[in-house]
Design a binder for these strands. Sequence first.
DNA 1: AGACGTACCTGACCGC
DNA 2: TGCGGTCAGGTACGTC
Length: 291
Amino acid sequence: MPELPEVETVRLGLKPALEDRVILKAQIRRGDLRRPFPARFTERLEGRAVRALRRRAKYILADLDSGETLVIHLGMSGRMSVYAAGHRRRLGDYVYNPAPESAGHDKHDHVILDTDAPARIVFNDHRRFGLMTLIATDALEENPLFEDIGIEPLSAGFGAAYLAQALAGKKPPVKSALLDQRVVAGLGNIYVCEALFLAHISPKRLAGAVRRDEVVRLARAIKSVLKAAIKAGGSTLRDHAQATGDPGNFQHRFLVYGREGKPCKGTRCGGTVKRIVQAGRSSFYCPRCQT
DNA sequence: AGACGTACCTGACCGC
DNA sequence: TGCGGTCAGGTACGTC
């Protein structure tokens, strides 16, 4: 699932259940995800108020009033679902599932947080590539998880100037460079493919050989595709769901991703979308539009 | 230092 | 119906 737009969608959906709320009870149903939960994990969460719910790259960050931050990564298949307790189904601007008796009892429901919204938040991750940990808030930036992560693509500081210097001298293909979280934070396979199509740049081009005028288009394309995807609630292929349980909608608007053999959607093109493998990942592109 | 391949884990899907 | 093989949105680690 989750690239920046999916993580941002989940964060927005969690907000009314978590931000400025108190975590009344925390439960874990196994000892680890991708890595073990930290010592006394549930005790360090219970009774804590969430001061802010932020996102950095593909991580959701819940700043607690204890000075620690709950760090959440959804991996490939993680979901965070909110169930409104009792008969209350509306939290803020969002309508959630009522709490079924089974909420938190699926085989892959690994973490359950009950807050005073009141709401139940369930973290489900069948592949267990996800991560949850606690890090001192004022030490986040120096933490190995974050110290090498690049600029946020939707921040004011991200533009052609930044991207040009970030790609300069890089030997890998531009496709691989954009997947590198040190270059730009939060991009994944889908949105890199889509952004390169929008910018008319072949994924095979070497990062350091992308011309300045192309970098200008690429920076704009990255921003626009991410914004549109967030607006659509992200892309659901298999696993992504918004916190309400609803799928995202952006997958219906893919221009190249997953469209191998289908006609290019570029105006006046008439070409066919091709799939190649780069660094072990599928790249989709139109050889006629993207050069 | 940087680039590449591989491993992590489960489920869905396809062909036989 | 069942089995084996392949693939999947991400990251981290070992190796060269």
